[in-house]
Design a binder for these strands. Structure first.
Lengths: 267, 267
DNA sequence: CAGTGGTCTAGACCACTGG
DNA sequence: CAGTGGTCTAGACCACTGC
């Protein structure tokens, strides 16, 4: 293993610590250098070494730190940027992505006005109906990978778009990372909720899965959304994840679609 | 500007033909080499130089053809592969993506069974209710970038999943590219519809946009989907595009969501 | 075995940002 | 101006496929 001659092209892999071991059968568990760099960067993001909005070290510096060429670091960063975890800005540096940026707000909200764009519609109005600590039901616990009865924070709110109440949603958050989240915190906060989670609790939502169904409005939902009971609504169930694919939020939304639609791009 | 010495790094751009001109104000309309290569490859795909499923020339060969380094060709291909237009297969070559491949079938269908996966559910059953040539309404014409009254092909069909009729959809296709598409063609075809479009009409669907709403089942829809009238259904309106972002299909679907859900990933 | 895509390097130069 | 990311090159070697 002693690659002592200075000029030889280095093929030694990093493998810092555990990794590969205990793969059961004969799989060598090999991965290219840039993937290993990507993992290391991911770990730094995960443990909060660089906060959302911060610049990470330059490619040159990272290359020196990891003892690889700039191109290899570059490829690792390329993938993280493609996953929306990092944002490159030519001439300035590479930054940790954040939900707090202007112009990229509501990145996870796919509801759009039928006519015109979101700009024309004006800003959303948020009304928090409730925010209380409770115990996870079996269903919520399963989704958030908790045990039934564990502490959770439950939030209920209405979003109004273009002046009409349009989204009614319930959120469940794991109690431990969100200790101290109260109704006051929420109502005082002006920006997107995920930006609040970043700045106050150090939890950054990275990706999410949504399951959509069509349902009839219950009496209570109908009242809160100001539509007749039985009106067809989109039921949008979202599970949002932080860095290491750990689920951190379960959200159940009911969307009015009389003046809006859920937009999706298929690649 | 005459970089005539043979060892000098070549900076001459290709700019084969028109491009940049007439940009109005002072925009130089400059683009990196690999983007130009990407455009050239895109044009070859567009004009059918390589058919879906075919291998394109090797990176080395393309590099020689375009007089650039392999790395530059590589970056162009990387982007086309990321857009699902090409598929790389190590040791074999790079292939034009197709909707006919096993294991990637129904790439654009986001409806999944609530329990289990698509495999467990078994194959979908298709019933074509109608296939006729007609004239484009103003609405259809606008979507497909035709003139109202232009010839279109209209198809109506039901898909059954897990034994139950689940999707009722109407399709509109521009008449000219789909000349000769009949009910017999459709019923005789065993595979995915987009694979038929590729092999019989040379039209490959590359991407699509969907707009989703919740609606109540009309009497006729209810009957065809075997649900009570008024049942909430997903209304999925899809506009599908070929290579140069030309719209080639308008599709209006009604999805039952009693045993299925529309699944979406948010990045 | 030859041919393909995949990884990695080292170095050059360009384009953009800010002081 | 120095520092950042962005492009491009040339060449080496690896990993996989199929004959």
């Amino acid at each position: 293993m002693t690659t002592s001659d200075p000029a030889a092209p280095r093929r030694t892999l990093l493998l810092s610590g555990e990794a590969s071991a205990a793969a059961g059968a004969g799989t060598p568990a090999f991965s290219p250098l840039y993937q290993q760099i990507k993992s290391l960067l991911l770990q730094s993001l995960q443990r909060g070494e660089w906060k959302p909005g911060d610049a990470i070290p330059s490619e040159q510096e990272l290359a020196a730190r990891f003892k690889v060429s700039q191109g290899t670091v570059r490829k690792a960063i390329d993938e993280l940027a493609a996953d929306n975890l990092l944002v490159r800005r030519q001439g300035k540096g590479t930054f940790v992505a954040t939900h707090a940026e202007r112009h990229v707000q509501y990145r996870f909200l796919r509801l759009h006005p039928d006519h015109g764009d979101r700009q024309a519609e004006g800003p959303a109005t948020r009304t928090v109906l409730a925010c209380r600590r409770s115990r996870a039901s079996a269903e919520v616990a399963a989704a958030l990978q908790l045990r039934a009865g564990d502490a959770v924070v439950q939030i209920s709110r209405v979003l109004s778009l273009g002046g009409a109440p349009t989204i009614l949603e319930d959120l469940w958050l794991p109690g431990t990372p969100f200790k101290g989240l109260t109704l006051e915190t929420l109502t005082a906060w002006a920006g997107p909720m995920y930006a609040l989670f970043e700045s106050q609790f150090g939890v950054r939502m990275v990706r999410a899965e949504e399951r959509i169904k069509a349902v009839a409005a219950s009496d209570i939902a109908a009242q809160r959304l100001q539509v007749p009971p039985g009106t067809p609504l989109l039921s949008v169930e979202r599970l949002a994840f932080t860095y290491n694919d750990a689920p951190m939020e379960l959200r159940r939304g009911l969307y009015r679609t009389d003046r809006h639609h859920y937009r999706n791009e298929l690649g």
